[in-house]
Design a binder for these strands. Structure first.
Lengths: 195, 195
DNA sequence: GGGCCGCCTTAACCTGGGTTAAGCCCCGAG
DNA sequence: CTCGGGGCTTAACCCAGGTTAAGGCGGCCC
């Protein structure tokens, strides 16, 4: 087994026999990305995804008007990929970019399908992943519905404390759905109140 | 088989042997709700959900400040339930209310688990449901990130044409994340431009 | 060292949506 | 028929955040 820590992590999320994990490892390959390198770009087939071994990524979508908004940040022990497009077997509309020098363990969707055919644990895992992703998106929806930008910022740092100092402020703004100017204002307003 | 139309609908979404469907029907019961009646209220266990046979529902969440926001509308051939809470086995924080006299086919989560143990088709269905829900929430997230309230309204009516005349305007506003006053303004602005 | 670039801040002005409050229209109960 | 209430609209005023533009600051390359 080459990635025992990752195995622990995944098995805790959804039980997985060691033997199956070893099979999966054999299908994966490690990819290193420098800062600013893209794991996925718009138009690419969205049939691959990765577990982050090291580093931070941002999932960006560029709107029709050319504005960037950020769907998610991903760091160690999380999945990176264009999940919605993968499910719909459509090309990626998402850019996934490393914010630091990073390493990822890459899987191909069709390899996972093969594993699924062999052992039910993979389907269970896939289901849990879908459910977990759903819960997170619903939480985010709730934040847009009843929180102001300032409250969303506060919650962002509670839920993403591990990203402190690792993501530029403008990207936090694009995640919150505001401009970097507005975010800067909010931050300085809070600073003043804190004195 | 008591609900052949529903069976067709579900089987098209995820293949399902007739025999399994008949078993499921035996575990379900039909519930009628008058206008304004609640299918689920906050604090209820979220372990039941239903297929809408007839009618329209709104899933409401009341924020800490006492403001209502609407997470979803559900009509014929859709699932109603507090899905996130069901997955987390926590009590419902969602109110689900009939906007018309409605009929629902009610299932209990633990009955579904029993069916899952008997035939893999149920797990496959559950997975597809999770994935589909995810895709919809991600789309909604995107709308909050890069669309103005007016554009969200436009898209709302494209995607919910079947709700025309069936949901009050204030509820549409609460779905879009704005007040009914703001929505009324947007509508009249559009009316003027259309002349 | 100097110049440049990436990132952040600040300011001035504009606009969309929130808040409050008044008023309208329709409908159903008495 | 009248009254009251629910749902929608309009208006006046306010504020958060968008837009545009200028400038600051640190790091990096030459």
């Amino acid at each position: 087994m080459k990635y025992p820590k990752l195995f622990e992590h995944i098995a805790a999320f959804s039980p997985l026999p060691e033997g199956e994990w070893v099979k999966a490892e054999a299908l994966a390959r490690e990819q290193a990305l420098e800062k600013r390198a893209l794991f996925l770009r718009p138009g690419d087939p969205a049939d691959r995804f990765g577990w982050v071994l090291q580093g931070v990524f941002r999932a960006v979508r560029v709107s029709a008007r050319g504005e960037e908004s950020i769907k998610a940040f991903r760091a160690e022990n999380q999945l990176v990929g264009a999940y919605a497009e993968l499910l719909q077997r459509s090309p990626s509309m998402t850019t996934i970019e490393a914010l630091e020098p990073s390493r990822v363990l890459v899987f191909h969707a069709r390899d996972l399908e093969a594993l699924e055919a062999g052992h039910a644990c993979w389907s269970r895992l896939a289901r849990r992943v879908a459910e977990q992703h759903y819960i997170l998106k619903e939480r985010r929806e709730q934040e847009f519905l009843d929180l102001s930008a300032e409250e969303r910022l506060e919650r962002f740092w509670v839920e993403h404390a591990h990203l402190h100092g690792r993501v530029p402020q403008r990207d936090v703004a694009a995640y919150l759905g505001i401009t970097e100017v507005a975010l800067s204002r909010i931050v300085s307003r809070r600073r003043k109140r804190a004195e």
